[in-house]
Design a binder for these strands. Structure first.
Lengths: 139, 139
DNA sequence: GAACCAATGTAATAATATAACAAGTCAAGA
DNA sequence: TCTTGACTTGTTATATTATTACATTGGTTC
């Protein structure tokens, strides 16, 4: 279990905002949401985000400049992290660790590159949006 | 062969700047480099970048907000693209297509997610930097 | 308490990216 | 040739994302 009780006030606020969000939030979206709770400046959010990423409680979706709470139960132990992002609804699904790593290990060994982390962002259209688009087109 | 002769003036300038660069360049770094050639505004660069990405002649390294010319000979046919980024020197190596795709296909089929593109950014330390660090530490 | 370290608050600014609109270019067809 | 329309361009202004710098607070250790 993660020791969430050690988090500071701002860190708790930020991680809770992300957990209760539908999808990824930008730093400034988080700021707006937390203004009523006394968070006033971008830096307060960014500092909390940095620490939370260090603790592997959240992730940054690089291609969106946005942040998500990790949904996988033992995510803080992951070395491999990926997302599937729907270009239509901006929804994000986490990719299980096993979809990626294997081949990379070989490549890393061959080239002498030592991995510390990975960002995998798959773009596409999710099932729901695809079905909606099909429904609109058919009639 | 790619039809580079169809590129507009700004597009040619931008792609050439990226090709002759050591590593990834930010949009504003490109702008500074091209000022002597009459490029004056960020939008001129961003528009060229957009088109070049559409043509698959260059790629964006999301986690650096920077852009690189594709080095793989048939890169414009790739659906899968990845980079290994050294956290020490910021150098970027392109990952061959075959290191990633397999497992993703299964996952995509299971979840009904239709892929259109992929951004894979592996963080770590490259061989050269690792050796340099080792040399510094040993004595 | 004094010294210290980490977290905080605040203001200012840097870096990255887009919106809005006017104007120029060029090929296809009347 | 003229004109229409799609596309590219130039320019200004502005939005969005992220960091620097510095003063302050709050607890921990000696």
């Amino acid at each position: 279990m993660v020791e969430t009780h050690k988090l500071t006030k701002n860190q708790k606020l930020v991680v809770e905002a992300l957990k209760s969000a539908e999808g990824p939030l930008s730093a400034y979206a988080i700021l707006e949401e937390l203004r009523p709770h006394g968070v006033k400046a971008p830096l307060q959010v960014y500092r909390a985000l940095d620490k939370l990423m260090e603790l592997k409680l959240i992730h940054k979706v690089e291609s969106m400049s946005a942040y998500v709470a990790c949904v996988q139960p033992d995510c803080h132990t992951h070395k491999t992290v990926g997302f599937a992002i729907c270009s239509s609804c901006n929804g994000v699904q986490e990719l299980p660790e096993n979809v990626v790593s294997l081949h990379l290990d070989n490549w890393a060994q061959e080239t002498g590159f030592v991995r510390s982390g990975i960002a995998l962002e798959v773009r596409g259209t999710c099932k729901t949006c695809r079905e909606n688009e099909a429904a609109e087109a058919c009639c």
